Amino acid sequence: KRPMNAFMVWSKIERRKIMEQSPDMHNAEISKRLGKRWKMLKDSEKIPFIREAERLRLKHMADYPDYK
């Protein structure tokens, strides 16, 4: 399994928030909203998620050195 990228790290957190607020919303609609919101974020707002994704990538490389 591949490590999460910055969007996936961010969307995992945000998806929970949306599901708590709107439990009946369909997954496809949540995904569309998340995509739009991610694109609207400033680069500076994405930095913590980019850093976390990089940390996960490095950990994945250490844990699975033969992964292609």
Rank of each mutant, 00 (worst) to 15 (best):
R55L: 08
I47S: 08
R33Q: 15
K36L: 13
R16I: 12
P3L: 10
E29R: 00
W10I: 00
K39L: 08
Y67R: 10
N5S: 14
A28N: 08
K36V: 13
H26E: 15
I18W: 08
I13A: 10
G35K: 15
M8L: 12
F49A: 02
K36H: 12
Y67D: 15
D66G: 12
R2M: 14
D66W: 01
E20C: 03
P3K: 12
N5V: 05
P3C: 05
S44Q: 15
L34E: 00
P65V: 12
K12I: 11
E14H: 04
I13T: 10
K42L: 07
R37C: 07
A62E: 10
L41S: 04
K12F: 08
K36A: 13
I13Q: 11
S22Q: 11
R57K: 14
K39V: 06
W38V: 02
H26R: 11
I18E: 07
H26N: 15
M19A: 08
A6W: 00
M19H: 09
F49Y: 13
W10H: 01
E20N: 08
I47V: 11
M4F: 09
W10F: 08
R16C: 07
P23H: 01
M61H: 11
I30Q: 01
M19L: 13
P3F: 07
M8T: 14
E45S: 01
E45P: 00
R33Y: 14
V9D: 03
R37D: 08
R33S: 12
G35N: 14
R2D: 14
F7W: 12
D43A: 08
F49T: 04
M19R: 08
L41W: 01
K1A: 11
A6Q: 00
P65C: 12
R57S: 12
P23K: 00
K36C: 10
K46L: 00
K46W: 00
A28R: 08
F49W: 08
K1T: 13
Q21K: 07
K39I: 10
F49Q: 02
E45Q: 08
M25H: 03
L56W: 01
I18F: 03
L34T: 02
W38G: 01
R33P: 02
M4H: 06
R51M: 14
F7E: 03
S22F: 14
K68H: 13
V9A: 03
I47C: 04
R57A: 13
A62K: 11
L41Y: 02
L56R: 04
R51T: 07
K32Y: 09
N5F: 02
R51E: 15
L41C: 01
Y67H: 13
M25A: 10
R57L: 07
K36W: 04
F7N: 01
I13V: 10
E14S: 05
R16A: 15
N5M: 02
F49L: 02
M19K: 13
N27L: 08
S22R: 05
W10K: 03
Q21M: 07
S11E: 15
A53D: 00
K36T: 14
P23S: 05
R15V: 06
F7H: 01
K46Q: 00
K1R: 06
P3R: 06
I50N: 07
I18V: 07
R15C: 06
P48I: 06
P23G: 06
V9Y: 04
M4C: 01
M40F: 06
K17L: 06
K46N: 01
R57G: 10
A6T: 02
K42E: 06
S22L: 05
M4L: 09
F7S: 00
P3V: 07
E29I: 01
I18P: 03
L34F: 03
S31C: 09
K46P: 01
R33I: 15
R15W: 05
Q21I: 10
R57T: 12
A6V: 03
H60K: 15
K46V: 03
S31M: 07
P65Y: 06
R16H: 12
F49D: 03
L58W: 09
D66K: 14
I47N: 05
K59W: 07
L58N: 13
D63G: 08
R2E: 10
Q21V: 09
D24F: 06
E29G: 01
A6C: 03
P48C: 03
Q21W: 07
K1Y: 13
K68C: 15
H60A: 15
K59R: 09
K17T: 05
M19V: 12
L41K: 03
K32C: 06
M61A: 14
L41V: 05
L56F: 06
K42C: 06
R2L: 13
L34P: 09
H26F: 05
A53F: 03
S31P: 01
H26A: 14
E45N: 05
D24E: 10
K17A: 05
P23C: 02
E45F: 07
S44L: 04
A62T: 13
K32M: 09
E14P: 02
P48R: 04
S44H: 12
H60W: 04
E29F: 00
L41A: 03
R55W: 08
D43F: 12
E54Q: 07
L41E: 00
S31T: 13
M25Y: 01
E20P: 01
Q21P: 05
N5P: 04
K36Q: 15
P48E: 06
L34V: 05
K36E: 15
S31K: 11
Q21N: 10
A28K: 08
E45L: 09
D66N: 09
R57H: 10
K1I: 12
G35E: 15
H26Q: 13
L56M: 13
L58M: 10
A28P: 04
W38A: 04
V9G: 03
L34M: 04
K12T: 10
M25D: 02
E45I: 07
R15N: 05
